[in-house]
């Protein structure tokens, strides 16, 4: 697993629950170091171990932890850069939804060995979509539910989202678009904020 994914998991747990909770989770997961480096590659099993340890430590279902992670990735100020990169996907939420299919390629533009799941968007009926996701970690669909929910807010779109189980090996997320321009959403200025 790419360190960037492990690192975002670590940032999520640290920013949301505090450094001491993260340390306890890292220890329970059997991590040898105090944290992940974003640009290294780790054994896949470590990521699962951290998620399981987090669910146990926080006494919450694994699915909830993953969904919160997805929301965090878009909505936390420390990851404003990631929100911006996702917003480059399109002018409207539906544009963005379609751009999810390009996400792995977009990711690799910046980080060549970044393995992201593949996405396949099926328009079942006007305004009704299913997003199929190839496996990366068990429950990846829940991360995407959280991420899409936060992105819908960002675009000001009103949507109903749900984890819709498996199609073969793929996890499915159902997206029902109720109102593309429900609220004004958050602003997106093309030029990067000055640091």
């Amino acid at each position: 697993m790419h360190g960037l994914i492990n690192r975002s998991l670590q940032s999520f747990l640290t920013d949301t629950y505090g450094p001491s909770v993260w340390q306890a989770i890292a220890k329970a997961a059997g991590l040898k170091t105090t944290g992940f480096e974003a640009l290294l590659i780790y054994e896949d099993a470590i990521t699962d171990a951290v998620i399981d340890a987090a669910a146990k430590q926080l006494n919450r279902p694994r699915e909830t932890v993953l969904e919160d992670l997805g929301t965090y990735l878009v909505s936390h100020q420390n990851l404003e850069g990631l929100r911006r990169l996702l917003r480059f996907g399109g002018v409207t939420f539906v544009d963005f939804l379609h751009s999810m299919e390009d996400l792995p390629e977009h990711g690799r533009l910046g980080v060549p060995n970044l393995d992201l799941p593949d996405f396949h968007l099926v328009e079942e009926a006007p305004g009704t979509f299913t997003l199929e996701i190839t496996p990366l970690i068990a429950g990846v669909g829940h991360v995407i539910v959280g991420l899409l929910r936060a992105m819908a807010d960002d675009y000001g779109a009103l949507v109903l989202l749900d984890h819709a189980g498996l199609r073969g090996a793929r996890e499915c997320v159902s997206v029902l678009l109720l109102d593309q321009a429900h609220s004004s959403g958050r602003s997106f200025d093309l030029s990067m904020p000055e640091v």
């Binding site: 480096e37 974003a38 640009l39 850069g81 990631l82 911006r84 990169l85 480059f88 977009h106 533009l109 910046g110 980080v111 093309l190 030029s191 990067m192």
Partner: peptide, 21 residues
């Protein structure tokens, strides 16, 4: 143009991460 803007942001983020590392 959008791809170029996107790339500049990705590059900036990766460089920042490298600097931190």
């Amino acid at each position: 143009a959008m791809e170029m803007l996107y790339l500049v942001e990705v590059k900036t983020a990766v460089m920042q991460e490298l600097r931190n590392l």
